[in-house]
Amino acid sequence: MRKLSVPVAVNLLLGIPAVVPLFLAWYILANGPLAAIGWTSQDPNENDGMLLWLVIAAPVFCLFGLVWGLANSWLRRRTPVRASRYWPVCATASLVPFFVIFGLF
C-alpha cells in the first residue's frame, strides 16, 4: 500500500477542484433527466434550459478530465502497481473531497 501513497495524495489534492465539475454534473442531472422521471424536483427558478448549463459545464468537465487524466497517466507509469488496483483507488481518492464537503459519507 505504500506504493500508492503518492498517487492517493495527488488524487486527494485533485479532488478539491473536482468538487466543481461533480457539483455541476449533479445539478444538471437533478434539474434535467432525474427531474423528468420524478426522482428529484426541478428548481423552480431553472427556466433557461439545459443548453446553457452544457455550455458552461462542458469546458469545466473537459479541463478537469484532461488534468486528471494526464496527471494519473504520468503517475501510473511511475507506480509499480497493477492497473486493476491503481485506477479504482485513485478514482475513489478523487471523489473523497466531494463526499466530505457535501456530507454524503
Rank of each mutant, 00 (worst) to 15 (best):
V20Q: 01
P17V: 01
W26V: 12
G38W: 11
K3E: 08
K3G: 02
I16S: 01
P17Y: 01
S41N: 14
S5K: 15
V20A: 05
P21C: 05
A18W: 00
A25N: 08
L12N: 06
G32H: 04
V8H: 10
Y27S: 06
W26Q: 13
L29Y: 06
P17Q: 07
V10N: 03
T40K: 11
G38V: 10
N11A: 09
V10E: 03
F23D: 00
I28A: 11
V6A: 12
V6H: 09
V8L: 13
A18N: 01
G32L: 06
L34V: 15
P17W: 00
V19C: 03
L22K: 00
L13A: 15
L13Q: 04
I16W: 00
V6I: 15
V10F: 05
A18G: 03
Y27L: 08
S41T: 15
G32D: 09
Y27F: 12
L24K: 02
P17A: 04
G15D: 04
W26H: 11
P7C: 10
T40P: 07
I16M: 02
P21I: 03
A18M: 02
S41A: 15
G38K: 11
I16D: 00
P17S: 05
V8Q: 09
W39G: 09
L34D: 15
W26P: 04
A30I: 09
L24G: 03
N11T: 06
L22V: 02
V8F: 10
V6L: 12
Y27P: 00
L14R: 02
A9M: 11
F23W: 12
G38A: 10
P33F: 13
K3R: 06
G32A: 09
A35D: 06
A9W: 13
G32F: 03
I28L: 14
V10K: 01
W26A: 12
L24S: 04
S5Q: 13
N11Y: 01
K3W: 03
A25R: 08
L13S: 07
P33W: 14
L12A: 06
A36W: 12
G32N: 12
A36E: 12
L29E: 11
G38L: 11
L12V: 08
L34K: 14
L22S: 07
L12I: 09
L14F: 04
L34C: 15
V19W: 00
L13C: 08
P21M: 07
L13E: 04
A25E: 10
W39T: 13
S5G: 07
W26R: 12
L13M: 11
A18I: 00
P21Q: 07
A30H: 07
P7G: 07
L24N: 02
L4S: 13
A35H: 09
F23K: 02
L14P: 02
T40I: 14
V19I: 15
L4I: 12
W26E: 09
